[in-house]
Computed example of a mutant assay.
Amino acid sequence: MLVSFDGSAATTVKAYRADAIAKDESLTVAVPAGTKSMRVTFRMYDGNNNWYWMVDSVGVR
């Protein structure tokens, strides 16, 4: 998961490996003072196996 603020370059907040176990997670992201917008991005690298990758029920508080 990557996060960027006000159009800045994205920063990796959390990365998973192929052997990660599915579970509910809560992550805390430090938001710079004065931030007006945040973009959360998910990206998959080296997706060359026959399994699947899923993100479900994402929320921001």
Score class of each variant (00 low, 15 high):
residue 38 M to K: 12
residue 1 M to P: 02
residue 52 Y to N: 12
residue 46 D to Y: 00
residue 13 V to F: 00
residue 57 S to D: 15
residue 21 I to F: 14
residue 35 T to D: 07
residue 17 R to F: 06
residue 24 D to S: 13
residue 35 T to S: 06
residue 15 A to T: 04
residue 50 N to V: 10
residue 43 R to A: 11
residue 56 D to K: 15
residue 15 A to G: 00
residue 27 L to I: 13
residue 12 T to I: 03
residue 16 Y to K: 08
residue 15 A to W: 03
residue 46 D to S: 00
residue 16 Y to V: 09
residue 58 V to I: 13
residue 28 T to Y: 05
residue 60 V to W: 05
residue 24 D to A: 14
residue 53 W to P: 02
residue 47 G to N: 10
residue 11 T to P: 04
residue 61 R to C: 03
residue 3 V to Y: 03
residue 1 M to N: 02
residue 29 V to N: 04
residue 54 M to A: 15
residue 8 S to M: 09
residue 10 A to M: 11
residue 7 G to A: 15
residue 26 S to L: 11
residue 53 W to L: 11
residue 34 G to T: 07
residue 40 V to D: 06
residue 47 G to C: 05
residue 16 Y to G: 04
residue 18 A to D: 05
residue 36 K to F: 00
residue 28 T to A: 02
residue 2 L to T: 09
residue 58 V to D: 02
residue 41 T to D: 11
residue 55 V to R: 02
residue 61 R to V: 05
residue 40 V to T: 12
residue 52 Y to W: 14
residue 12 T to P: 00
residue 1 M to L: 08
residue 7 G to F: 13
residue 37 S to V: 12
residue 28 T to L: 09
residue 42 F to T: 08
residue 57 S to R: 14
residue 36 K to L: 03
residue 7 G to S: 13
residue 24 D to F: 08
residue 15 A to Q: 06
residue 45 Y to W: 00
residue 25 E to H: 07
residue 41 T to W: 01
residue 58 V to K: 04
residue 6 D to K: 03
residue 52 Y to S: 15
residue 59 G to L: 09
residue 4 S to I: 00
residue 33 A to E: 02
residue 37 S to L: 10
residue 57 S to E: 14
residue 53 W to K: 15
residue 25 E to I: 12
residue 33 A to N: 07
residue 9 A to S: 15
residue 33 A to T: 06
residue 10 A to L: 13
residue 18 A to M: 03
residue 22 A to I: 13
residue 13 V to G: 01
residue 39 R to L: 15
residue 15 A to C: 01
residue 41 T to K: 08
residue 16 Y to T: 09
residue 20 A to R: 01
residue 50 N to H: 10
residue 31 V to F: 02
residue 45 Y to K: 05
residue 47 G to Q: 04
residue 4 S to Q: 11
residue 44 M to K: 04
residue 56 D to I: 09
residue 51 W to N: 12
residue 36 K to T: 09
residue 55 V to L: 10
residue 18 A to Y: 01
residue 55 V to K: 06
residue 10 A to K: 07
residue 24 D to C: 01
residue 12 T to L: 02
residue 19 D to C: 07
residue 54 M to K: 15
residue 47 G to L: 02
residue 10 A to D: 09
residue 41 T to P: 05
residue 42 F to E: 04
residue 8 S to T: 13
residue 49 N to Q: 10
residue 29 V to E: 00
residue 18 A to W: 06
residue 56 D to T: 05
residue 21 I to W: 12
residue 50 N to L: 13
residue 5 F to Q: 07
residue 6 D to L: 07
residue 44 M to L: 09
residue 33 A to P: 04
residue 10 A to E: 14
residue 6 D to F: 06
residue 17 R to T: 06
residue 42 F to P: 07
residue 6 D to G: 08
residue 34 G to K: 02
residue 2 L to W: 05
residue 48 N to G: 11
residue 37 S to P: 01
residue 53 W to F: 14
residue 19 D to M: 10
residue 8 S to Q: 14
residue 11 T to S: 11
residue 44 M to S: 01
residue 23 K to Y: 00
residue 16 Y to C: 05
residue 40 V to I: 15
residue 61 R to H: 11
residue 56 D to R: 14
residue 28 T to S: 00
residue 44 M to E: 08
residue 14 K to E: 06
residue 53 W to V: 13
residue 48 N to A: 12
residue 24 D to G: 13
residue 26 S to T: 14
residue 38 M to C: 12
residue 31 V to D: 02
